[in-house]
Design a protein around this nucleic acid. Structure first.
Length: 409
RNA sequence: CGGGGACUAGUUCAUCGGUAGAACGCUGCGUUCGGGACGCAGAGGCAGAGGGUUCAAUUCCCUCGUCCCCGACCA
């Protein structure tokens, strides 16, 4: 991508109203644009990051046997009346459809997937099933806040697993938990597995919590064995696993996994004929992960006074190529060559090809956007590239083939 | 949903009773050219909406709306 064509350009000033770090930096650097409280446009750079995060999650869900599908954002109100949540779910967006029918904007998808499965699953031979989607959710939060951390419209991955019995469900729960641990490792985002309450819906749950001062949850972390519990289920002052003292920390909930109670399966008659011929109720697990919240959390955790520092796996581009002295046709020609060659090698590159912009401005914008590797071509670099990593201070000179070599490892 | 703060140019902010000004950004010209350069010229505003007080309201008062923060909420 040539920077001269990229929509939009970065901002020099922080917009009024953007208080949290992720909001400020993501808006300034041109990743998102706020439309109203808790609702954002993902601009081209932001959309690239969302896609990278989604792809990592998708791969791990597929590895765990998940089948991706896409359920509607618009739900029949009737389904929500059946579960009683049409009135009890207090952040539910409700609207009227044709013929004065009640509709709901989906904040979660039990009301869709249970009846869907009830229609198709008839036999133990149809189970187990692991179905997921990456989809936009709507929750009418009393107070949207903190940029992407708490929106009214947000992107979430939700997987629902369906089993013939609780033991099978619990075994799969462990597989999902491992998949989540792997996902956060690949995202480069620290996340602690935290014991939490299950709400009205589950007896227990586990959250994935990223410790950071901007978090709105309070968790207790054992400094000795690294196990953690949410404040909401906290009892006593010692670690339940190893007996050491807990330390209180703020954290952002980036994922939540839990076995579901039987109530919804009963409501929607989600049952099947088991191998013994007996009619049984399906056992269900639910596994959520906030895609857009992860994006905001990464910025909260990885930034400095100059801008964002993306982990390599989710950065919008691998290399930020800066051309200086581009009014010199020879240097422009070389820079174009490097740009094309990187693309041929499959290395995603953002090429700042602007002629009428000062070096200082290009550096400032580069640091703000936060791509992992900065490569400079100028009259100083001769046939080499000047390479600097976003998270390091030192620069080194290397040839294009050396850089390609290093990146392909 | 309770409490607090803020709405003036595309953006960030000044003016705080006499119908608006800067910086950044944008356009043109010139000078610069390794850390968001500089000069000159130019375009760009019914001051969130409505009502009141006043000879006169961006400015004071009220209502509403929107955004941000603290709290409650987060099944």
């Amino acid at each position: 991508m040539k920077y001269s064509k990229l929509f939009p350009k970065t901002l020099k000033q922080t917009p009024a109203g953007a208080e949290s770090i992720n909001h400020q930096l993501l808006v300034k650097a041109g990743f998102i644009h706020q439309e109203m409280a808790g609702v954002y446009t993902y601009l081209p750079l932001g959309q690239k990051v969302i896609t990278k995060i989604s792809d990592i999650v998708r791969e791990e869900m597929n590895n765990a046997g998940g089948q991706e599908m896409l359920m509607p954002a618009l739900h029949p109100g009737e389904n929500w009346k059946k579960t009683g949540r049409f009135n009890s779910f207090d952040v539910l967006f409700k609207l009227k459809g044709a013929g004065d029918s009640d509709l709901v904007l989906g904040p979660t998808h039990e009301e869709i997937i249970y009846p869907l499965l009830a229609e198709y699953v008839k036999s133990y031979k149809d189970l187990p099933l692991y179905l997921y989607q990456i989809q936009t959710k709507f929750r009418n939060e009393a107070r949207a806040k903190a940029g992407l951390l708490r929106g009214r419209e947000f992107i979430m991955k939700d997987l629902y697993s369906f089993h013939t019995n609780d033991d099978d469900r619990n075994a799969y729960y462990q597989i999902m938990k491992e998949a989540y641990i792997k996902i956060f490792k690949r995202l480069g985002l620290p996340a602690l597995v935290t014991q939490a309450s299950g709400g009205t819906f589950s007896d227990l749950s586990e959250e994935f919590q990223t410790p950071t001062p901007s978090g709105e949850d309070i968790i207790y972390v054992c400094e000795s064995c690294n196990s953690a519990v949410n404040k909401e289920v906290y009892e006593g002052s010692d670690c339940v696993t190893c007996g050491q003292k807990y330390k209180e920390t703020k954290a952002i909930e980036v994922g939540n996994i839990f076995p579901l109670k039987r109530a919804y399966a009963e409501t929607f008659k989600l049952n099947f004929a088991d191998s013994d011929g007996e009619d049984k109720i399906v056992s269900v697990g639910c596994y959520g992960l906030g895609i857009s919240r992860v994006m905001g959390t990464i910025v909260e955790v990885f930034h400095d006074e100059k801008g964002i520092i993306w982990p390599e796996s989710v950065a919008p581009y691998k290399v930020h190529l800066i051309g200086l002295d581009l009014e010199d046709e020879k240097i422009m020609g070389e820079a174009e060559k490097v740009y094309k060659q990187l693309q041929v090698e499959g290395i995603e590159v953002l090429f700042d090809n602007r002629i009428d912009v000062s070096a200082g401005q290009k550096f400032a914008e580069c640091d703000l956007i936060g791509i992992p590797i900065r490569a400079i071509i100028s009259k100083k670099t001769e046939s080499k590239l000047e390479i600097k990593k976003r998270n390091e201070k030192t620069t080194e000179f290397m040839s294009l083939s050396e850089l390609i070599n290093r990146l392909s490892k």
